[in-house]
Structure formats: structure tokens, C-alpha cells
């Protein structure tokens, strides 16, 4: 393999090896081997004290216990809904920042979008809990305004979980959207308009095709974050939120059934990988490009 770097030829061999060592240690010891271990754990069954045989029993268990795969499907479905809703809500804001607001106004608006994400998810979720719980701000306000007769519990509904998930995902959708909208030449929109296209046609034929890479990148990131979220579903959804990450925690930490937990972890990983690959295939993009964009 020819060495294309400009470094002095004599020392580049060991220099390269030295530079490569941290990356290999990091990826090998913290990513590749742990996931191999996870795979081994999930594909074996304990038949005696410290005696294991290869088996699919943990996956079998998953498909035969309705509670497990219900939770799984529910998590996936709600993540898809949350991703789509985030896209719809974030798009107008990204458009305003990229195309309508000028100079300082755009910068301020963008900063305003970023501020909540400087603060940890725990704090943001605390805010939603204070707002929405039965004794919270929103029920009290609605009673005062005469809209409700009695305070109502707004926590522990699926909609509440969705609101929390959308809230947490906003920035990760807005940033890639802005960067893809900014590169859209206004002249194209003007031309379409001059040729008689209405707003909807411009959006469908010009804006969305151009913004597709940003939409894909944002959706993939938001979907993965939502799928892997833990705080928001468990706190806003309560004890029976039915989120798959909670299931994994229960198996691993509470029940200490690592084999089952590992199988769940793998299923979640497969699901998120499949959706990412499907998203990339659908829009004909490559993984490296999408991740580089964010």
C-alpha cells in the first residue's frame, strides 16, 4: 500500500501504528467486543450452574410473550409518529430561520431554539411534569379559566409521552433542515412562482426534493434518539409507559437476566439499524454523508 502522506518516509510506519492505537482500543474494547459479548449472551441458554449451550430461547421468549413484542412494536410505532410530528413542527421554523428572518433575527431565533438543549433532559422533563400533573400548572389554569370543572391528570398518557419526545427532538431536526434549506437558491423558487406555481407546488416539486438530505438526516437522528430514550417515556408515561428501553433495564438490572436483556438489546439495535438503512435507501444516500452533515 503506497503511503500518500507527506510525512518523512522512514518514521511513518510506527507513527501510523501509534496514531492508530487509540482508535483501535476505543472501537475494539468499547464497541466491537462488547457487542460481540452481547450477541454471545443473547444466543445461549443456561442449563446448569455456569453451564451454557447455544440456543435461541431468549428470542423465542420474546416472540411468545405478547407483552414483550407489544412493547417493542409500540416503541417503534410511537417513535415513528414522534419523528414525523417533529419534522412537521420543525419545518416551518427551519424555513423561517433559513429563508425569511434576516441577519440578527435569524441568529436570535436559532439561539432561542438551541437554549433548551443546553439543559439536561432531566430538567426539561421536570418542567413538563410540573406543567402537566394533576396538581400542576396547566390543569390549575384550565380550571381557573372555567374550561375544566376539576383538575385533570395530563401525565401518563401516550400523547404526553409524544409531546415530551417531540420537545426533546426539536433541535436535532431543525439543524439539518436549516443547513439543507440554506443551500436552496431563492431564484428557483422565484422562477417557479413566475411560471405560475402555487405555494404547495413549490413545496412539493422544489423545496422538499432539495431538502431531502436534511430531512433524512434529521429524521434518522430523531428516530434513534426517540427509540433509545428512557427518561421521557418513564417519567411522563409513568410505571406502565411500555417503552422498550425500560424493558431492557428491567431484565438487566432488576431481574438480572442478562441473556434476555441482551436479546432485547439486540432486537432494539436491529430495529434502529433497519430503519436507518431503510431511510437511507429510500432517499438514496450514504451513511457517512448523512452523519457528516450533522
Amino acid at each position: 500500500m503506497p503511503d500518500a502522506s507527506v510525512a518523512a518516509p522512514g518514521d511513518s510506519g510506527w507513527r501510523k501504528a501509534l496514531l492508530m492505537a487509540p482508535a483501535l482500543a476505543w472501537l475494539g474494547l468499547l464497541i466491537v467486543l462488547p457487542h460481540a459479548e452481547l450477541a454471545v449472551l443473547s444466543f445461549r441458554e443456561q442449563v446448569g450452574p455456569r453451564h451454557y449451550v447455544p440456543s435461541l430461547s431468549h428470542y423465542h421468549e420474546f416472540f411468545h410473550e405478547p407483552e414483550y413484542w407489544h412493547t417493542f412494536v409500540r416503541t417503534a410505532w410511537m417513535s415513528i409518529v414522534a419523528t414525523f410530528a417533529t419534522l412537521c413542527l420543525a419545518f416551518p421554523i427551519a424555513w423561517v430561520i433559513a429563508k425569511i428572518a434576516r441577519g440578527r433575527a435569524a441568529v436570535w431565533l436559532f439561539l432561542a431554539c438551541m437554549i433548551p438543549f443546553w439543559i439536561s433532559e432531566t430538567v426539561r422533563t421536570l418542567g413538563w411534569m410540573i406543567l402537566l400533573r394533576e396538581t400542576g400548572v396547566l390543569p390549575a389554569l384550565l380550571v381557573k379559566l372555567g374550561i375544566l370543572a376539576h383538575p385533570v391528570e395530563f401525565l401518563y398518557h401516550d400523547t404526553t409521552i409524544l409531546v415530551g419526545l417531540i420537545y426533546n427532538s426539536m433541535l436535532f431536526m431543525i439543524v439539518p433542515l436549516i443547513s439543507s434549506l440554506e443551500s436552496l437558491d431563492n431564484a428557483l423558487i422565484e422562477a417557479a412562482y413566475d411560471l405560475g406555481a402555487n405555494g404547495f407546488t413549490v413545496l412539493r416539486k422544489i423545496v422538499i426534493p432539495h431538502a431531502a438530505p436534511g430531512i433524512t438526516a434529521g429524521s434518522i437522528i430523531v428516530f434513534m434518539l426517540t427509540l433509545g430514550d428512557y427518561i421521557t417515556p418513564t417519567l411522563l408515561g409513568g410505571k406502565d409507559s411500555g417503552w422498550f428501553t425500560e424493558q431492557i433495564y428491567t431484565e438487566f438490572i432488576t431481574r438480572f437476566d442478562w441473556g434476555q436483556g441482551a436479546a432485547f438489546g439486540f432486537l432494539l439495535l436491529v430495529l434502529s439499524t433497519l430503519i436507518v438503512v431503510a431511510g437511507l435507501k429510500l432517499t438514496g444516500q450514504r451513511f457517512g454523508d448523512v452523519m457528516g452533515r450533522t
Binding site: H35, L38, G228
Partner: peptide, 11 residues
Amino acid sequence: VIPGVILGISI
């Protein structure tokens, strides 16, 4: 792209 929970349990 690996959920944080899974990074945690694998390690």
C-alpha cells in the same frame, strides 16, 4: 447510532 442504553449494557 447505537442507543445509549445498549452501549451501556454491552460495556
